[in-house]
């Protein structure tokens, strides 16, 4: 009996394909593929249904063609729901069609039809879902590594002075990483003063402040000084409103001011070689003399 179902479906592939294309195109109205051009959408649909039938003709299950087709769609960034919805529609269309070929159907045959169609469609859906989630997991793990890499660079700007710009949200895991980088970096660069720049940290809540304070205290223990810079007005407000005590180590609103303090702490001052006004004066004098 299963063979009979196979034959009906394969012999009438034209009609089934026509029905399928019609439904899939109708469904498209309120759909995720709206950014894709009609032409591409139609040709992809045709390709899709052809691969499904190829798979059926070769006895069902996953074929090389189907695999490379889905792989290509994954890489192009087509949504997974396009494929799963397409296959579910295929299931419905096929069952409807086979049923419509028979005036009377006993339950046994009915279950054979369902069973047969399921053994075509289900392995394909499973494989596709696996493929997609595998590709997502891969992306997520890549991004995690990327995030760790950009986590916290330490920049030695001058002998004994280094800067650590913090960017993005800080969670506990990242805070530990940052602290490790900070401390080993201080030792490596023999830094007396470290400027931690939080200009790029969007939100400073109690947890983030706690991590920053811990880092600053650890820096003090290994024998260096910490200056917190880049405190925007709204961050100053939240820090005070939350009752966070940052009083134990110096803070500055901008990196520039912090850097000046760092220079002072390491016994340096900034001096301009010649004041701009005197240069202008010189030019004026030359002009009047000439």
């Amino acid at each position: 009996m299963p063979k009979r179902v196979d034959r009906i479906v394969l012999d009438n592939s034209d009609v089934i394909i026509k029905n399928w294309l019609k439904i899939v195109s109708e469904n498209r109205q309120n759909d995720y593929t709206s950014s894709i051009s009609d032409e591409l959408f139609q040709s992809t649909n045709r390709e899709f249904v052809n691969v499904i039938f190829d798979s059926l003709a070769s006895g069902g299950g996953l074929t090389k063609e189907l695999e490379s087709f889905s792989e290509r769609l994954v890489n192009l960034g087509w949504p997974l729901s396009y494929l799963t919805d397409g296959l579910q529609t295929f299931r419905r269309v096929t069952i409807d069609f086979v049923l419509s070929q028979h005036d009377q159907i006993d339950t046994d045959f009915f279950s054979v039809i369902l069973d047969r169609v399921d053994t075509w469609v289900d392995p394909i859906i499973n494989k596709l879902v696996n493929e997609y989630s595998g590709s997502w997991e891969h992306t997520v793990s890549l991004q995690r590594v990327a995030l760790q890499e950009l986590s916290a660079p330490l920049i030695p700007v001058m002998r004994n002075i280094t800067i650590m710009p913090l960017i993005g949200t800080i969670d506990t895991e990242r805070a530990k990483q940052i602290m490790e980088n900070l401390l080993t970096g201080v030792i490596k660069h023999n830094a007396e003063v470290v400027l931690i720049d939080i200009t790029g940290v969007p939100v400073v809540d109690t947890m983030v402040a706690h991590h920053i304070i811990q880092a600053a205290e650890a820096v003090r223990l290994i024998g260096a000084k910490c200056i917190l810079v880049g405190i925007r007005p709204e961050i100053a407000q939240t820090i005070v409103n939350l009752g966070i005590d940052l009083g134990k180590f110096p803070t500055k609103s901008s990196l520039r001011k912090g850097f000046e303090t760092a220079l002072e702490l390491t016994g340096r001052t900034i001096q301009r070689e010649k004041k701009q006004e005197t240069i202008v004066e010189d030019i004026m004098n030359q002009l009047t003399e000439g």
């Binding site: 530990k176 602290m179 490790e180 401390l183 080993t184 201080v186 030792i187 023999n190 830094a191 007396e192 811990q214 205290e217 650890a218 820096v219 003090r220 223990l221 290994i222 024998g223 260096a224």
Partner: peptide, 23 residues
């Protein structure tokens, strides 16, 4: 004081507030 030691002390809750340190 080694970085690992400093981090451990801070996490233990020991801050050694009154102690002078140097690299």
């Amino acid at each position: 004081i080694q970085p690992a030691v400093a981090m451990t002390l801070i996490e233990l809750g020991i801050h050694m507030q009154d102690v002078q340190t140097a690299l």
